[in-house]
Structures are given as C-alpha cells and as structure tokens.
C-alpha cells in the first residue's frame, strides 16, 4: 500500500514475478539438465516446458477467474468442486450418448450455473464470499458424485480424447485452450470498461455504487466468469485422464488458484489486478511442483519442500525486500562516491 520509497516505480511492473518464474525454471534446469530440450515429433512439441504448460493449464484457468473475483475483494472457494461437476457432466453426457459438443456445452453451462449461484449469494443476498462459495465447495463434490454415481466414469469419445491428448499448432490442446481463454478474458475486461468497474468495486464498493457502477452486476459477472473457467478446467482435467473422477478432480486446486493470484502480485484486499501476472504466477507454481516431483526426493518431503519454496518466492516479492533493494541501491552509490 504505502510506497514510501518508491520501489515499485523503480522496478519494472511484473519484474519480481518474472524473476520468480525464471528462478523456478532455473531450479528445474539444475534438477534435470535437459529441461529446456524441446523436440518436434509428429507435428507436436514435446519437452518439460510443454509439460508444465499442459499441467498448469487448469491452474491458469482457475487463476484468471480467481484474479477477477479477488479484485472485487471476494474469493471463490468452489472452483475445485465446479471442475468436478463439469467433468462429471461432460463424461455423463457422452456416456448417455449425447454428441460431444452438446456434452461440453452442458458441462460449461453447469459451470455458468454454479457461477451464477455464487454470484447471486454474494451480490444479491450479501453473503460473505468465503461463506457463500464454501457452500458449493462442500456440496459441489457431492453433486458431482451424484452425477457419476460415485464411480470414475471412463469415456472414449474421440473428440474428448483429442482434447486430452491432441495438439493444435504443435501445442497440447489444453495449453491452447487455457491461454486462449486467458487472452479472451483479458480482452473482454481490458477492452471494455469491466476492468475499471471491477477494480473500482474492489477498492470501494460503496463509492462505486454511488458513482453509478452496476456493482451487483459486476459481482455476478466475476463469479460467472470464474465458474465458466473452472468448468473449462474441469473438462480439460477429465479429458486429460479420459475419465471423470468426481472425488479427486480439482481437489484443493482452489488453493492453487489463490496462490497463483498471490504469486502474480495480487492483493487479497481487492483492487488492482493483473491477469498476465496471474498466469505467470500459475506457471511459476506448476514449475515448482514439477521441480519437486522430478528432484527425486522421497515423497514425504513434497509438501514441506513446496511450502518452503512458496514462502521463499513470496518473500522475494514482498514490499519489504523490494524496499531493501531500493535502499541498497542508493547506499551502494554513496560508497562509490
């Protein structure tokens, strides 16, 4: 908030976030020396960076939605469950013989419905976002189980399999879908006045309302987008394993999404947001996960290592460290004089 030393203006915007991503990538290169080795086979790109993009696709989608929600001072805990619901709907759809397009449309529709539900609870009923979305977080997984009757619903519909394993322009479909969706949302908010409205509502909801900003509509909108993106992520995750796993799909991913926003430099107090940096944050997170998985530590250390690394990254990005850097620079100059 306070920018007494002006370090933010001194460093380029997004510098700390990109630095964190670079560090995470460097750590990977240390763990596996041929990390950056890319290979083109059958018109498709293979390599660890591609894997990271592919694995990170759901987090990117959830993160983008979460960034909008958090910008309005809210939070959407239900995204993991919405993923499970969407995956279940898509799988159940093709299992009942519906065309693949209809199944996916139904799955995305389910996401929109979930987002609408959250948005109405928050914007119209005035329930605190963390409580409102907790309802669907808890109940949503049950709904997903109901749809799959408690089993892992495997499918072999060729279009869905293509989403999971195919490629567009050499990149996995999931990567293209996630980046395209992120770009689309970016265009939709930045090329319209939505970004201004979202930030205004997040900074001061009352003043925004009095300035004529349709605060409620803005709130419903962000939860709706979050639900739709979560459903997209759910379809991708189901296509990835060729099955709808109601119990495990998207489990705890809401926390990853929040972390992606935070790693992207977003404040949980709402206001300014950056979708681009949130994507960077999501990819940083996935890069770290990949690094830990590949380092060959015993699995008991996974969580500790992850927590430690995330803490380090957050400290690097913290204003205090930035201020320290800012203070060191003039001091060094003095020494030289």
């Amino acid at each position: 908030m306070t920018d007494l030393l002006g370090w933010r203006s001194r460093l380029p915007r997004g510098g700390p976030q990109l630095a964190a991503l670079a560090l995470a990538l460097a750590a990977n290169a240390v763990v596996s020396p041929d990390f950056f080795h890319l290979l083109l086979r059958d018109g498709r790109l293979f390599g660890s960076p591609v894997d990271i993009l592919n694995r990170g696709a759901p987090t990117v989608l959830l993160g983008v939605g979460m960034a909008l929600v958090i910008a309005t001072r809210g939070i959407d805990l239900s995204v993991g469950s919405v993923m499970a619901i969407a995956g279940a709907v898509a799988a159940a759809g093709v299992a009942h013989g519906l065309p693949w397009g209809v199944s996916i449309a139904l799955a995305l529709g389910a996401g929109v419905a979930c987002g609408l539900w959250n948005g109405l609870l928050v914007a119209i009923m005035g329930i605190q976002p963390i409580v409102a979305t907790l309802v669907l977080m808890v109940a949503g997984r049950g709904v997903a189980q109901l749809i799959t009757s408690g089993r892992i619903l495997t499918f072999d519909e060729p279009h869905l399999l293509w989403i999971g394993g195919g490629a567009i322009a050499g990149l996995p479909v999931a990567v293209v879908v996630a980046l395209a969706a992120a770009a689309l949302v970016l265009l939709m908010v930045r090329r319209t006045a939505l970004a201004l409205f979202i930030e205004a509502v997040g900074v001061n909801p009352q003043a925004s309302r009095l300035a004529g900003v349709p605060s409620r509509a803005v709130l419903v909108y962000v939860y709706l987008v979050s639900g739709l993106l979560a459903a997209t992520a759910g379809v991708l995750a189901a296509a990835d394993i060729r099955a709808a796993d109601a119990n495990n799909a998207g489990l705890w991913l809401e926390l990853d999404a929040i972390l992606a926003v935070v790693l992207g430099g977003g404040s949980l107090y709402g206001g300014r947001f950056s979708l681009g940096l949130t994507v960077v944050g999501a990819l940083t997170l996935q890069t770290l996960k990949t690094c830990i998985l590949r380092a060959g530590f015993p699995p008991e250390f996974n969580l500790i290592a992850m927590a430690g690394v995330v803490a380090v990254v957050l400290v690097i990005q913290s204003p205090a460290v930035g201020a320290l850097g800012g203070r060191l620079v003039p001091r060094l100059r003095e020494v030289r004089l």
Binding site: A237, D240, I241, D245, N247, N248, A249, L251, P299, N302
Partner: peptide, 9 residues
C-alpha cells in the same frame, strides 16, 4: 518413488 495420491490425474 513418488506419491500419486491414489488418483488418475
């Protein structure tokens, strides 16, 4: 050896 947490994904 690594944990796959019992899930497909």
């Amino acid at each position: 050896t690594q944990s796959g947490e019992f899930t497909r994904a």
